[in-house]
Each structure stands twice: as C-alpha cells, then as structure tokens.
Design a protein around this nucleic acid. Structure first.
Length: 179
DNA sequence: TCTAGGATCGGCT
DNA sequence: GCCGATCCTAGAT
C-alpha cells in the first residue's frame, strides 16, 4: 500500500527563507469512491477535489473548518481518486523557519496534525496540484532511511466518525520513532 | 442565492 | 478532557 511507503519519506518545501524538510511519521489513506470518509465518495467530482481525479504524485490541498489547510498526495492513475493525507512529521531541516511559522506552539507538538503540517511548511491552496515527484515548490524525497515494518502501527482514522463503517477501517499509519 | 456542516486546533476547566 | 472558533464548500432551493 502506498500509504505505508510514504512513512519515513522526506517532504521538502522551498520557502522564501530557505529549504525545509520534514520526515513523514503519520498518514491516512483515503480510498476514493468507495470510502465514505473521502471527498470523492460515490464519485463526487467538483472543482475542489479535481486534483484527486488527476495524475498520481500530485498535491491535493483543501481548506476546512474555516481556518485550516490539509495536504494529501494522490496515489493512483487518473480516474481513480485515491490519496494519502499527510497527518504529521518531524522536522529534519529548516527547523527555525518551521518554528517561526508555528509560533504559538513548539516542541514535540510542532507538526502533530495535518493542519499544523501545512501551517509550518507554508502550504496552502496555491500549491494544489503541484507535482511532488520532481523538485520544485514542494516535493517528496527518499533519503534511504530504513523503516522497520514492526515500527509501523495501523490505527483507526481520526475525525471521520460520520463515515459509518468506513470510519473503522484501519487506514491510519503511524511511524513509531520512540524507542 | 442560501444554508448546513466539516479529513482541526488551541485555549480553558 | 471538553468546547468554541470561523469561513469555505457543496448541495439544496
């Protein structure tokens, strides 16, 4: 599954102040038209989620709760609107920049939620549709870090209680970095 | 055009 | 641990 493969990868972001890098430690999979928790459930296709329906390896950024952005990476061919929500990570480079953008809270809670990730890296709707497979404004890289399978935990997704049975699917993957 | 609700966060008890 | 903020989006009228 692509969601597991994304754990341990490094998300790079080119900011006016410099380059920031985050190792991804928490993701959630959204399985397209058959997933009641996904924006594309039942084949919904709108201006907002158009990116979901396109090429794999693109950034899908959406706005929610009136104040938060969340970032996904699409994983399938056009016509298969599946994506992985980036829920959290740890800063591996450019920590000063990220902390400056997340002034209110810091420490281990710097990037422990999808909206915080976007805020810390300056990701918003202008980056929707960006190609993350090649270096640019924002992209994904593999620095060769080994991710032991026994450090990956599958959990129930968060914040999708409205989705009925789909809410109980174990599609949230957490990389346990603690000893 | 109108209205309801949300893939959340942070402050307060 | 619980609750309120806040505004965009989508579906209904």
């Amino acid at each position: 599954m692509v969601a597991r493969a994304l754990l341990g990868k490094v998300l790079l972001r080119r900011l006016p102040e410099g380059l920031a890098a985050v190792r991804i430690t928490e993701v959630e999979a959204y399985l397209g038209v058959g997933d009641a928790a996904a924006h594309t459930f039942g084949g919904r296709r709108t201006a907002r989620n158009e990116t979901m329906w396109g090429e794999a390896g693109r950034l899908y950024v959406y706005f929610t709760y009136g104040m938060h952005h969340c970032a996904n990476v699409t994983t399938r061919a056009p016509g298969q609107p599946e994506a992985v929500l980036l829920r959290g990570g740890v800063v591996v480079a450019g920590a000063e920049m990220v902390r400056a953008r997340r002034r209110r809270s810091a420490g281990s809670r710097l990037l422990d939620g999808p909206a915080k990730l976007c805020q810390g890296l300056g990701i918003d709707r202008t980056l929707d549709g960006a190609d993350v497979t090649v270096p640019g404004e924002v992209w994904l890289a593999d620095d060769g870090a080994v991710v032991p399978r026994n450090r990956i935990c599958a959990r129930v997704r968060v914040g999708v209680a409205y989705a009925g049975a789909a809410a109980a699917w174990p599609l949230r993957f957490v990389l346990d970095l603690e000893p």
